[in-house]
Amino acid sequence: MTFPAASDVEFGAEDHALTVTELGYGAMSIAGAYGAIAEQDSQTLLHDLYDRGITFLDTANVYGDGESELRLGEFLKGRRYDVTIATKVGIVKGGGPGKRRARGDAAYIREQIDGSLKRLGTDYVDLYYLHRVDPEVPIEESAGALGELVEAGKVRTIGLSEATAEEIRRAHAVHPVTAVQSEWSVFARDVETHVLGACRELGIGFVAYSPVGRGLITDRFDFDAVAENDVRRTFPWFSSENLPANRQLVQRVGEIGQGAGLSTGATAMAWLYAKARQLGVNLSVIPGTRYIEHWDELATGLEKALDDDAVSALDALAEQVRGDRSFDPNWVSGGREGLLPRA
């Protein structure tokens, strides 16, 4: 069986450059965010991805209270130097989504890296993100602390997640930022207004998470099957008042993709790569799933290009989406840039 070939993409420059696959894997799913997955099943999934040439793996210390990092650490045994690992610091768990807080002070960042390294079973990570910008701590302090970890050899490059364009520029002035990670999809477009321009200007790579809207923009989404503890139940797109209208938009995505022979999810993936080329952004996309067959379906978005008419038709859907992409607009870059909320 053959699989779509993921090419390499370069983030950053010179001493702060990082080469990653343009298609990676978001490992929040192996910590149970969207439903339980057994340890052995998670290892099988990671091995299947590796066999497909996927070597860019993304996690965070907060995913499953470290469980995602632990499972990746088990997988990394014997192949650490063949895999690019990104993890994150900066979210302190409370009672779940909407009750968490950002923490980005230097002491906390220095403390947390050692726990991540231990769980991952390595003495360095390739990319270390500030998971959320702490409103109580200047971004310069957070970036400086991340930069100190580079000097200490614990981190190769640094990144920011859900940072505004202004925050990106301020952090980059303290220490070169190699990558920015934020949500970007057919339905979530706010990063195109300011953030992607800042990345292009500064030579920073962009990593798109939730490229299919946490499974919404696929042919298989069934809200009735979503568990009570599934994080999606806290997001406005999935509320009872918004979901019916958003499902109609999902159907439209599928109709547009049919002309290219793509499923709904693969259409959303193909659209992202088309937009990145259009906007001049170096992009890696990190879908997350518990099932390799779902991942393979999304990966077909690498195989077939959408024509300009299809891209334009998909572009027009975002303004019709009901609800914000986050439970708290201030939790994401678009909210702090005044681009959210949306009715």
Rank of each mutant, 00 (worst) to 15 (best):
R156P: 07
E201K: 02
A274C: 09
A343M: 13
N282W: 06
V155N: 05
R169K: 10
V20Y: 01
I158H: 05
A310G: 09
A316L: 09
R336C: 08
V191R: 07
P341C: 12
K77V: 15
N330I: 08
K275Q: 15
D123N: 15
G261V: 08
V250I: 01
S326H: 09
T218Q: 00
G53H: 12
S240F: 06
L249T: 01
A270Q: 11
A13F: 05
A316P: 01
C199D: 11
G215I: 00
T264Y: 02
V186F: 00
W331V: 09
H172T: 13
G64K: 12
A313E: 14
K77L: 12
L18Q: 02
Q320M: 11
F206L: 02
T289F: 09
L49R: 07
G26P: 00
D126Q: 05
A60S: 15
P236A: 06
G78R: 12
A227G: 11
T87A: 10
I292K: 08
R336F: 05
V250P: 00
S185V: 07
S142W: 02
E183I: 10
G121H: 04
G24D: 07
D105R: 08
L249Q: 01
F187V: 07
P211V: 10
G73P: 02
T87M: 06
A165N: 06
Y124C: 06
V191W: 01
F11H: 04
L302K: 07
R277M: 08
D230C: 02
E228P: 00
V125F: 04
E10Y: 01
D51I: 05
G121F: 01
G96K: 13
P138N: 11
M1G: 05
S210E: 03
D41M: 05
V89G: 10
L272Y: 03
V137T: 15
G24A: 08
H16E: 14
V177H: 03
T218L: 00
Y129H: 14
R277D: 14
Y63F: 13
F187E: 04
D328S: 12
D328N: 11
G96L: 14
G257D: 03
L45K: 04
S7F: 02
P341T: 15
